[in-house]
Design a protein around this nucleic acid. Structure first.
Length: 221
DNA sequence: ATTTGATCATAG
DNA sequence: CTATGATCAAAT
């Protein structure tokens, strides 16, 4: 049952707020793993299922007809993010001519339904609770910062400087490995413009940025 | 204690 | 491998 309207999606998200993972999983007849060590995406799938997102879909956004991307975000008791947020893989080849306006990062972040979830490891997984949903669109200033980082990071990639990339670059957006392990390889552009084997990289939002989003909405409540 | 780099499961 | 969903854990 996929939500037809934005309000329907929001209502459904509101209705699961306050539930524990155990309670929601029971309703959906899903089993709760002991922890997330081997099920890192379990909470995301749980929430997707509960809200009617197409499971395992390859679509650009979870609710493409609504133009909305769904993201869970683990928070501590103070409401601050415990992890960075993966956005999308970075295009390491055939990327000349790609501009911010047409980027996957911008598209995915154009409208996000954030579901804060309790993420502290001392709370048993089945007892962790789901928070109130936040429907967010980047402000002009937030998008400006995202664009600035994206352009800086893409320059490294396009100009054959992948070897100089690390997670310290970027104010709000960073590039980090995104693969099965450190042996997973993909094609990239080398120092002399040649094709090389290199680690796949993904764009991630820094915790400070997502923390700002959460605060922005807490302040208005 | 925090951040960077590494890693896990699944579908196609 | 790419893309979905992310968190783990070694290094700092």
């Amino acid at each position: 049952m996929t939500p037809i309207t934005e309000n329907e999606l929001l209502d459904r998200a509101q209705s699961i707020a306050g539930l524990t993972f155990g309670e929601l999983a029971a309703e959906l007849r899903l089993s709760v793993p002991p922890d997330l060590k081997r099920d890192k995406g379990w909470v995301g799938m749980l929430i997707e299922t509960a809200l009617g997102a197409a499971a395992g879909s390859k679509a650009e956004q979870d609710f493409a007809h609504l133009g909305i991307e769904l993201k869970t975000i683990p928070i501590n008791a103070q409401g601050k993010p415990l992890e960075t947020t993966f956005v999308s893989l970075a295009p390491l080849i055939q990327n000349s001519g790609i501009i911010w306006e047409h980027s996957h990062v911008r598209h995915k972040l154009s409208k996000v339904l954030w579901i804060p979830i309790e993420g502290e490891r001392h709370i048993p997984l089945h007892e962790r609770r789901i928070g109130a949903p936040i429907l967010w669109q980047p402000s002009a200033e937030q998008e400006r910062r995202l664009k600035q980082d994206w352009e800086e990071l893409m320059d490294y990639i396009v100009l054959g400087q992948i070897d100089r990339i690390n997670a310290r670059l970027g104010e709000v957006l960073q590039l980090r490995p995104k693969g099965a392990n450190s042996k997973a390889l993909t094609k990239g552009i080398g120092k002399n413009g040649q094709i090389i084997d290199t680690l796949p990289l993904g764009f991630y939002l820094r915790k400070e940025f997502t923390g700002e989003i959460l605060q922005q909405f807490l302040a208005q409540r």
